[in-house]
């Protein structure tokens, strides 16, 4: 990320990171998560599941800031995120 000036507390604050996981067999392809992810982590997948729906695919895992909107908005309980521990988060910034 680029800053126009270096924030004074940059060494203390780190962006939360999370890993996005998808339970593909539950997905019904409504695309809410893909559309409303504020950092465009997800794209519509190209492979279909056993019901013929296209579950999302995690494209930019590093961009995820652990906001949890995909998990909240998914009507199928098919996507969730695992918040990474701070030391892991620091390494990936």
């Amino acid at each position: 990320m680029k800053y126009w000036r270096r924030p004074l507390d940059l060494d203390k604050v780190c962006l939360p990171r999370a890993e996005v996981r998808i339970i593909e067999e539950r997905c019904k392809g409504c695309n809410y998560c893909v559309t409303y992810c504020p950092r465009n982590v997800l794209v519509t997948g190209e492979k279909f599941n056993s019901k013929g729906y296209y579950p999302p695919h995690v494209k930019n895992q590093d961009e995820c800031a652990s906001c949890g909107l995909c998990q909240m908005i998914c009507p199928e309980f098919a996507i969730y995120h695992i918040v990474q521990r701070p030391e892991v988060a620091e390494q990936s910034v």
């Binding site: 019904k28 392809g29 809410y32 729906y53 909240m72 998914c74 199928e76 309980f77």
Partner: peptide, 10 residues
């Protein structure tokens, strides 16, 4: 697919 009830349950 696309029904909002699941979101409300969450």
């Amino acid at each position: 697919p696309g029904c909002g009830i699941g979101t409300v349950v969450y």
